[in-house]
């Protein structure tokens, strides 16, 4: 009979270097799943939000319903949202992605629409006067000018998605949320704290990354100051 090792794992401490070294693979897998879930859902959300915002901008009649539906979706608590999608997707990663897409839609559509609406009428008229058709106007004038507002929405949507993905643990696809859920049931403090901190780190890193991207793709916003 050997005595149990007297390390921080055995003592169930909050901060534990031993945990990091022995559970590295589990942590990396969870981080990978977390990143996949968030990135996929934000990208799909963006792909759906852009046409919706353009539609709402072009035909004022559609703006009301589009905003109303996305607001209703945003009001539904995440746990209920994932549960409502259960009959459609079953216990799968697709369920979590679909739920996160619906959340990011609200933030993205609202910010995109605000950005498009903020494009000055003079700018639009100038482009039309230069012979721009509606599609060229949209792609080369309106959408670029809406970028700062859209990027602000994208940053909020991404940070929210990182944090909401943890609730996916209810169906077993929550990335780091899975570790938190498992850690809760086994009273494993180091695992819960490490996974929670990693979640916040991912959210902050994603936010900074998008801020950098915004800096790169909107050179005109800093030309004024320089």
């Amino acid at each position: 009979m050997t005595a149990p090792p007297d390390d921080c794992l055995a003592r169930n401490e909050w901060i534990c270097g031993e945990y990091l070294s022995t559970r590295r693979e589990i942590l990396l897998d969870a981080v990978g799943q977390h990143l996949q879930l968030t990135a996929l859902s934000v990208l799909i959300g963006l792909a759906v939000a852009v046409p919706l915002a353009v539609l709402a901008r072009r035909w004022a009649l559609t703006a009301g319903p589009v905003l109303a539906v996305t607001t209703v979706l945003y009001t539904i608590p995440s746990l209920a949202m994932f549960s409502l999608l259960l009959p459609v997707y079953g216990l799968s990663a697709a369920l979590v992605v679909a739920g996160l897409v619906l959340y990011s839609l609200t933030l993205l559509v609202r910010n995109l629409l605000a950005g498009l609406r903020a494009v000055p009428e003079e700018t639009r008229q100038a482009a039309r006067g230069m012979g721009y058709g509606p599609i060229r106007l949209l792609l080369t004038v309106e959408l670029p000018l809406a970028l700062p507002a859209a990027m602000a929405g994208l940053r909020i949507a991404t940070v929210s998605a990182v944090s909401l993905a943890t609730v996916g643990a209810i169906v077993g696809f929550g990335g780091l949320g899975n570790l938190i859920y498992a850690g809760m049931n086994t009273y494993f403090k180091a695992q819960v704290l490490t996974a929670s901190v990693l979640c916040v780190v991912i959210a902050v890193a994603a936010d900074l990354l998008l801020l950098g991207v915004q800096w790169l793709i909107t050179p005109w916003t800093r030309a004024k100051r320089g």
């Binding site: 909020i156 940070v159 929210s160 990182v162 944090s163 909401l164 943890t166 609730v167 643990a169 949320g177 938190i180 859920y181 850690g183 809760m184 009273y187 403090k189 819960v192 704290l193 996974a195 929670s196 979640c199 916040v200 959210a203 902050v204 936010d207």
Partner: peptide
């Protein structure tokens, strides 16, 4: 507000529980 958004609700709940 921005900080609040980045911190997962679920993680805080479990941390407090422990």
């Amino acid at each position: 507000s921005n900080v609040g958004r980045a911190v997962p609700t679920f993680a805080v709940l479990v941390l407090l529980l422990l």
